[in-house]
Amino acid sequence: MAQRMIWARLAKVALLALSLLVAGAVTAAIEVRQFDDPVLQQRYDSLAASLRCPKCANQAIGDSDSPIAGDMRERVALLLEEGRSDREIQDYMIDRFGEYVLYNPRLTDRTWLLWGLPAALVVLGAVVIALIVRARRNASNRALSAEERQRLEALINRERTR
């Protein structure tokens, strides 16, 4: 019985792995640009993964088969071969399609809140934790008042005399 369950589970895992493989094969169907220079190839791949397709819902131009994503990949390849820097290629796309095309928005006066808020929240959390810890420590270290000592003694004595 237990053995059968293990087999069923293995089959499930195998099926999942297979479907992932197939999914990989489908995305690989998008035409992939090959460069002789491995550095250019690496830059092309990272640009294609970091530029957002303006037409599609949340896909990088390297993942989308929409016509505009194809045009953009082609243009990226062309600009790379012209010797433009990554920054220049990003600017080129922003000039036409807006800041939207960057998956990693740049730090500007419009985006500082976006970048700063998580860090600010972490700092705020640390401050709150520190305050709580300090308050607790103070509470436990506080000396007993005369009245409290009396009560404590009374309790101890009651235990002893029993």
Binding site: C53, P54, K55, S66, I68, D71, R75, R96, F97, G98
Partner: peptide, 12 residues
């Protein structure tokens, strides 16, 4: 070729 369209940021 869609070259003017590209410079206009047209995506459809």
């Amino acid at each position: 070729e869609g070259s003017l369209g590209f410079d206009l940021g047209v995506y459809g």
